[in-house]
């Protein structure tokens, strides 16, 4: 006997999330609903006396398959929302009628059969292992081969062959120069040793600040420091004769 509580819990836990397949718009929501269905089914397996399958269900479906689905969803764009409006004429009605008809047919068939349930409890992992590696050992082996084939197949199918030869560093550099970039590295920012000078522009030989030596991020955040501020600080604390700003000197000469 199976606990009715278990049955109803499982029924609700599977049927309601599975309806998301029909009505949810976001693929991620559907995937998570299916994960829920899988967990519910695992519970059902355990309740039906098949703990091994229940665990396998969790591991394979929730752990591997559905995660794979999620990965692929990420790859193809997780934020795709599907328009549920039907494009094929009559497809919706055909689908609903056939699915409904199928359900009615199946249920009527099941209702007709009469099975006297066996009270014998089977399904502990040891028994399964004995059967699996004895009677079904050949099928086991073949399935192993199938899995490897599938893995190789997936690799082959998702592999993109290199269409162009790999670019060498020299070629990359030449392309950059051609696009108008600086032929050499940008100057390093900062000239003031007493300060964390990443936010201070470097100075060119004339003493003028080189604006683009500072990271663009700092520039956007308006965290770039001005040289003048430090000069003022320096001039106020030290001998102005020793630490004269070249820029100011140049201006003075003008």
């Amino acid at each position: 006997m199976v606990s009715p509580v278990l049955f109803w819990v499982v029924a609700l836990l599977t049927v309601i999330p599975s309806l998301a397949l029909l009505f949810a718009r976001k693929a991620v929501h559907i995937a998570m609903s299916i994960v829920c269905v899988m967990v519910g089914l695992a519970a059902a397996y355990v309740g039906l006396g098949a703990p091994f399958l229940g665990v396998v269900q969790i591991v394979v479906y929730t752990g591997a398959v559905m995660m794979l689905f999620l990965f692929v969803l990420m790859l193809v764009g997780v934020d795709q929302r599907e328009d549920l409006k039907e494009t094929l004429r009559g497809q919706r009605w055909i689908a609903l009628f056939t699915a409904g008809g199928l359900a009615i047919l199946l249920i009527s068939v099941i209702g007709r059969v009469s099975i006297s349930p066996q009270e014998e409890q089977v399904g502990n992992p040891e028994d399964i292992a004995l059967v699996l590696f004895d009677r079904y050992v050949l099928v086991m082996e073949v399935l192993g081969a199938l899995l490897i084939t599938a893995a190789v197949g997936a690799l082959v199918m998702t592999h993109t062959p290199r269409l162009l030869p790999r670019k060498t560093q020299a070629e990359v550099h030449a392309a950059r120069v051609l696009a108008g970039a600086d032929p050499v590295n940008k100057p390093m920012p900062g000239v003031y040793a007493r300060h964390n000078a990443l936010d201070v522009p470097a100075l060119d030989p004339d003493g003028n600040p080189i604006e683009h030596s500072v990271s663009r991020v700092l520039e956007v955040r308006e965290q770039m420091s001005d040289g003048d501020e430090f000069r003022a600080r320096l001039e106020s604390t030290a001998n102005p004769e020793d630490h004269q700003n070249p820029q100011a000197e140049a201006e003075g000469e003008k």
């Binding site: 599975s18 309806l19 397949l21 609903l96 699915a99 409904g100 199928l102 359900a103 199946l106």
Partner: peptide, 10 residues
């Protein structure tokens, strides 16, 4: 049976 039908409709 019900789950199967829902899947096929999907």
């Amino acid at each position: 049976a019900i789950l199967f039908s829902i899947g096929s409709a999907a």
